[in-house]
Design a protein around this nucleic acid. Structure first.
Lengths: 124, 124
DNA sequence: CGTTTAATTAACTATATAGTTAAATATAAT
DNA sequence: ATTATATTTAACTATATAGTTAATTAAACG
């Protein structure tokens, strides 16, 4: 069995499951509600499996209402994931700065090049 | 091929790789530097593979210095992952509130139960 | 040149993941 | 009791992932 954080990230590493979470962010939904947008791409059992992955990761909880299984989003594991990520904030902020600097450099070079191209045959 | 966000989360879904990022957060390191703490648990080719996963996800970049391959952390994909996650902040904050409420309820119940237990054989 | 150090590639194995179809279960409705 | 709806389970397949050992490449060193 995997550590909880790995399980969370693994669960998030799939666009179908992320879309399901996005849907659940708008409110509770049954399995078939959640399946709706995907039934052209995959079968219902496939959806059930995706939900099981999310459930085992603790990202959703399923309850019972007659023959329906209403699902609800649970933020706790996302909080842990976010806490883990926060310790790297400086790196993505730094990389933004670097991109910023890079763009400035490129712009400066382009301008220089532009100038150069103007006087095609230099006097020397 | 997978979408970048899925690739990022998949790369993070492994404790070895997260430990490598933690090491790289402290500064550049060669492959053998990074391998060091894991060579009791796995072989060098396994380490190479983990680094390749991180590299393909854009989380690290490898350069060359003689026979060494210094690795550097790259925050950009973490930024995207964080941006994705931010949209769920309300849910983990809400769940914290719920836990808070829950703990209060439990405490209240415990107190009530404690009182009950004091008068073991009620007068009625 | 031959050897050592650093790292990768090749070839292979085991297990996990993501999907399928068909059958089963659970609840409600007729 | 039978049927319809919602969902899951079983059994299976294909591909991806994580690891192995042995061989290979790349650069530096004596």
């Amino acid at each position: 069995m995997r550590d909880p954080l790995s399980q969370t990230f693994a669960a998030l590493a799939d666009p179908t499951r992320r879309a399901m979470l996005a849907r659940l962010a708008k409110g509770e939904a049954s399995v078939s509600d959640l399946a709706g947008p995907f039934l052209k791409e995959m079968s219902l059992p496939a959806v059930t499996k995706h939900l099981k992955v999310l459930e085992k990761a603790g990202l959703i909880t399923k309850t019972r209402d007659a023959q329906w299984r209403p699902c609800k989003i649970n933020g706790v594991p996302l909080k842990d994931a976010n806490n883990w990520m926060e310790q790297y904030r400086e790196f993505w902020e730094a990389s933004f700065d670097r991109l910023d600097e890079y763009l400035k450099t490129v712009t400066a070079k382009k301008l220089a090049k532009g100038k150069k191209n103007v006087r095609k045959k230099p006097t020397e």
